[in-house]
Amino acid sequence: MSESTWQLLLDSLWPLIHGAITGTIPLALSSFAIGLVLALGLALMRLSRRRWLSSIAQVYISIVRGTPLLVQLFVIFYGLPSLGIVIDPWPSAIVAFSINVGGYAAEVIRAAILSVPKGQWEAAYMIGMSHRRALTRIILPQAARVSVPPLSNTFISLVKDTSLASLILVTELFREAQQVAAFSQQFMALYLEAALLYWVICLVLSSGQGALEKRLDRYVAH
């Protein structure tokens, strides 16, 4: 690589990092937070004894998991305006990613709740707890531990998937890279630089996952 390429990589480093800090990371965090709330609701609906509630959640999850994220993103950003609903790029991206995370994480949370032994529910009822209190104080904390590894995977996938938001004009890490690349015609260098930055972010997240798992594992036998 020529010296000018190195210089370009160095010069573009800040715009890319800036894109990550102001685009990729807040987009991933907010979508994940909203998606998790959605997922918990969906998981509880799935587990409900009321058939219709469970069915609604099941259909939702099936649609989200059975259609490409890019298509969901395009439906919201490019499709809805034809129905008179115009949403800006940022909110569109957050809505699409939240809906998507909701679908995937719902199944994770449902499985985690089901993995808590029945005896835990019974002990909670025995000490006089209501269903809701048993869920929040006894079952969910135990389910949380079980769901950390799969939910971390969901989050890491989401961080990478936010690059799709560049296609609906959200300025984030990858869109910054595209712009510098188009301007300088150094596609290989810029896209590899973007890839490297995503990788670094995911490495940091993975180590965070490890620390969190360790913390949550303090009350189980090793």
Binding site: P117, G119, Q120, E122, A123, A124, M126, I127, I138, P141, Q142, R145, Y219, V220
Partner: peptide, 12 residues
């Protein structure tokens, strides 16, 4: 108040 065969203590 019940004492269970498998204790069912809250592990967390």
């Amino acid at each position: 108040a019940m004492v269970f065969q498998h204790y069912n203590l809250f592990p967390h």
